[in-house]
Design a binder for these strands. Sequence first.
DNA 1: AAGACGGGGTA
DNA 2: TACCCAGTCTT
Length: 350
Amino acid sequence: MKLEQITEPLLSWYEKNKRDLPWRREPTPYHVWVSEIMLQQTRVEAVKDYYRRFLAELPGTRDLAACPENKLLKLWEGLGYYNRVKNMQKAAKEIVEEYGGNIPPDYEKILALPGIGSYTAGAVSSIAFGLKKPAVDGNVLRVISRITENGEDILKQSVKRRVEQELEAVMPEDRPGAFNQSLMELGATVCIPNGMAKCDVCPVRHLCSARAHGTVLDYPKKAAKKQRRIEEKTVLLIQNGQEYAICKRPDKGLLAGLYEFPNMEGWLTQEEVLKAVEELKLMPLHIRAAGEAKHIFSHVEWHMKGYVVKVASTEEKKAGSLLFINKKESKGKYPIPSAFSAYRKYIEED
DNA sequence: AAGACGGGGTA
DNA sequence: TACCCAGTCTT
């Protein structure tokens, strides 16, 4: 089978079946860029509302470059992989400084920006600028591995590089963006992961080797991933009147720069919690358990036990690294990740 | 080459 | 549960 044969059927199918997505309405370079960053490891349905809200607040590259970090993280709150938005702002500043505020229509220059790898550089280049560059993501690797019945591990970068080369060689000069999107659209809606592929409506079923051999569900091949480690944590809801304490996470590592409830490693007893609160220069008045919660990240699990600790009123809005906030501030101002959602309700209620 | 980095939908 | 998602950066 010559891979080149897929281009015409894919393009025809795409024109008839493409979804109406917010970022396809007016595919300016900025719009395409923002959408592609949000879509990294994130489903279309999850992105839609974030995308609309983000563009309403930050309609252009210069707005993004000038946005305060707390507001930026708040716009990303719950979407995950927060380095994406920090890198995007770094890139926005570079674009303002180096390119007068406009993303350059140049694949190599786009690729050199922070947070942009070969996939995103190819997507922006082809969709926004009509450049003949492939955009190979998980969808494309799945589709191609099935069509060619290739049993190599698609997580290996050598496999991805080769697919990029092969696709670049067969891409249509005139519609590279539509071609890239047709492969991704096919992977997202027809040649879907875990579950039955809808081969009966696939525009390239007659060219698919796995389809011919009844082995579609055997592809793509992927190496098994290793087990998550488990971390036990104690989460404190330190209550001072109508306010609760939060603190800022370090600016590197997991959930960098976001806010959280004070917490410590391990499961502490009530006595240990009271002692810890006193070490924060606070006077505990009352303590009660606040339930358990589990949060699963891709590489680690948090097993949390919570306590509500009422403390004697402090004059200070800040006590050490702690910041006391009320319900309204927590909603509008400080980005708090979903990992704490089980405990966030203690300040959002009442 | 392998690990870090979120969160939610789905079977 | 486990997998996967319009991946990228660091080690």
